[in-house]
Amino acid sequence: MKFSSTEDIEAPIDAVFRAVSNFNTIERSALRRGARVQRVDRKTHPSTRIAWDVGFSFRGKKRDMLIELTEFDEPNRLLAQSLSGGLEGEVMVNLVALSKNRTRMLIDIDLKPKTLSARLMVQSMRLAKTKLTKRYHLKVAGFASGIEDRFKNGKLG
């Protein structure tokens, strides 16, 4: 099951990349939403592989997920892969400079069920695909708007 969204941001590609690769901010955001987030590596430079052990509730059940940053191509692309039970996922962020101060951000999520229970979960998500897609687009648009606002206020450099 795939979700895809594209947003144009009034900020240079380097500033947008700094925002989407600010893992400390993303970790804090997940913690505020009730997730348990723990880095499972001791790497200090983002170009090396970084991984997280994440716990959260989904549909009334506690879930555990391992997320690993597998590609870090500054300032163009990030790829994170995840595994939760029998569900594999990929989140790909591609950035394209449209001009000196305008960047196109494409965020794709691909979920692949590997077990029967994961297939059943994805099938139920397919039944609600329109609603989930709308929520996904709103979240990505809000994320892009936040990046734009932080850049305009001088908080991204």
Rank of each mutant, 00 (worst) to 15 (best):
F143H: 08
L87Y: 00
I9R: 03
D149Q: 14
T44P: 09
A19P: 12
V91G: 07
K100N: 05
A141H: 13
F17W: 08
L98D: 15
Q38R: 07
K100W: 05
S29T: 14
A141R: 14
L98A: 08
R18L: 02
E148R: 05
A35K: 08
E71Q: 03
T6Q: 11
W52F: 00
L78D: 02
A51W: 00
A19T: 10
E10C: 13
G86C: 01
R42T: 06
Q81C: 04
S124H: 07
S117A: 06
A15F: 02
L69A: 10
K112A: 01
L106T: 15
S47Y: 13
I147T: 14
K100D: 14
D110S: 12
V140M: 13
S82E: 14
G89D: 01
G60L: 01
R119Q: 05
T48N: 12
F17D: 08
K131F: 06
T130R: 09
L127G: 15
S84W: 02
T115R: 00
L120V: 00
A128G: 07
E7Q: 09
E7K: 13
H137Q: 09
S145T: 14
K134E: 15
E7I: 05
F72Q: 04
R102P: 04
K152F: 07
F56N: 03
N153C: 06
I67K: 03
F23D: 04
N153V: 05
K61P: 11
F143I: 08
M125I: 05
A51P: 03
K2E: 06
F3Y: 11
E7H: 08
Q81N: 10
N76A: 13
E7D: 09
E27M: 06
D110M: 06
R119G: 01
T115V: 01
L98G: 11
A144N: 11
L78Q: 03
F72W: 05
M105W: 08
V20H: 09
S82P: 12
V122S: 04
R33M: 09
I50S: 03
N153E: 15
A141M: 10
A97T: 08
D8K: 15
K152C: 07
R102H: 08
T48G: 06
G89W: 00
S5N: 15
R104W: 05
F56Q: 01
E74R: 12
M65T: 00
R77S: 13
R59Q: 11
S145R: 11
V96P: 03
Q123V: 00
T44C: 11
V54H: 00
H137N: 10
Q123S: 00
V40A: 12
L120M: 00
T133I: 04
R102M: 11
L120Y: 00
M1R: 00
H137W: 04
F56W: 01
V54A: 02
V122P: 05
S84K: 03
G154S: 02
G60E: 04
H45N: 12
A144R: 07
